[in-house]
Amino acid sequence: MNDLWNMLRGAARGDRADPQDRTARDAPTQPAIIEASDLTKTYHSHGIEVRALDGVNLKIASGAMVAIMGASGSGKSTLLNCLAGLDTIDSGRIHIAGQDMAEMSDRARTALRSQTMGFVFQTFNLLPVLDAVENVELPLLILRVPATEARRRARALLDAVGLAHREHHRPAELSGGQRQRVAIARALINDPLIVWADEPTGSLDSEAADEIMHLFARFNQEQQQTIVIVTHAPEIGARAGQNLLMRDGRLV
């Protein structure tokens, strides 16, 4: 497992472009960390078929900040879920840092997620039973990082997102913006290659949304993480380096 981890990190980090060179990251000229070809996915229910992904092809460069945009029902969240290995595809290929996701077992996909990815969702998806710092350190526990080290890093990240004073508050005791900041800290705690964010500002007011996007931009610049954001809001898309527009299950 560690070999996989090192290999992935090497593949991803070794060829990273200069963080200041936005052009290089904006266009897929850098080695692609996410590569998908001919993705299809169809939902079936009681004889009705809905094609959610219809031959999607894309490449996302390492360290890029990409917004996948489109109207409701266009398939953008499905695309994110499939790319992140949260959902399966009917056909096509997905390569994450050179690894073919379609060929992987569920076990390997899960391991890949825990080591290389972070997630932020519209509904925050924090575990209500854990307080802020426990939520943040959870991915490190899965990776078997020593408890004291995990706690130190979680605190540091909470500090970085401005919530050091709320570390022992449970999600129910935090505001929406604060919860999303905890979620971002959790997404970044394992130093992921890719952060997936599905409508991360959808439940927030404009001020909180702005704060969140600022955090994404900051981490993208400082940590060189690839950030893929699904959104239908043009103002969010405008802050990403690259926009992909989806319509009827296709990238247009």
């Binding site: 949260l86 391991a111 997630f119």
Partner: peptide, 14 residues
């Protein structure tokens, strides 16, 4: 269900 999904997303095996 949602929390289980999140744990799976974060890397919990089945």
């Amino acid at each position: 269900r949602q929390q289980i999904g999140m744990l799976r997303a974060l890397g919990f095996q089945r």
